[in-house]
C-alpha cells in the first residue's frame, strides 16, 4: 500500500503546503497593511443600518419542542406503514403480523407517553404542580 500511495501523494502534499503558505501570507499581509480603528460602533452587530434591540437569546417553551418531536416520530412511522400498504398483497400474512407488531409497539409507546403526561401542554407534572399549589392556597 505504501508503494502505491506515496508517489501519488506528493503533489497533494505540495498543494496542501502551497495553500497553507498562501493563507498565512494573506493574513500576515492584511495584518500589516490593513487599517484598524476602534470606535463606539465597531463591535455592534450590523443589521442593515437598524439599531438592534433586546437580547438575541429568546426562550421558547419546551412544550413546542415536545410536540414537534412527537409529531416527527409518529409521522415517520407512518412512512413505514405507507411502504407496507403498497406491498400489502406481496408481503402476505407474514407482513401483516410484522406490521401488527410494529403498530402494537407504537401503540404501547403512545400509551406510555400519554400516561407520562407528555401529551399535556407543558407536561403533566407542571399541571399537577399547579393544581397542588392551588389546592394548597385554597387550604389556607
Amino acid at each position: 500500500m505504501v508503494d502505491v500511495v506515496v508517489p501519488e501523494l506528493w503533489p497533494l502534499i505540495a498543494y496542501f503546503l502551497a495553500v497553507l503558505g498562501l493563507v498565512v501570507l494573506m493574513l500576515t499581509l492584511s495584518h500589516f497593511l490593513g487599517q484598524r480603528r476602534r470606535d463606539r460602533a465597531t463591535d455592534e452587530p450590523y443589521e442593515s443600518g437598524i439599531v438592534s434591540v433586546g437580547s438575541a437569546r429568546l426562550r421558547f417553551s419546551i412544550g413546542f419542542y415536545l410536540v414537534a418531536i412527537l409529531f416527527v416520530i409518529f409521522d415517520l412511522e407512518a412512512i413505514y406503514l405507507f411502504a407496507w400498504a403498497i406491498s400489502f398483497r406481496e408481503a402476505g400474512m407474514l407482513g401483516f403480523i410484522e406490521a401488527s407488531i410494529f403498530i402494537g409497539v407504537l401503540l404501547v409507546g403512545l400509551i406510555y407517553l400519554w400516561r407520562l403526561g407528555a401529551l399535556d401542554w407543558g407536561g403533566k407534572q407542571k399541571s399537577l404542580e399547579q393544581r397542588e399549589s392551588v389546592n394548597a392556597n385554597n387550604g389556607k
Binding site: G104, V105, V108, G109, I111, Y112, W114, R115, L116
Partner: peptide, 10 residues
C-alpha cells in the same frame, strides 16, 4: 421491555 413499559405507565 414493552410489557414493563406498559406496567410502568400505569
Amino acid at each position: 421491555i414493552i410489557l414493563l413499559m406498559l406496567i410502568v405507565a400505569f
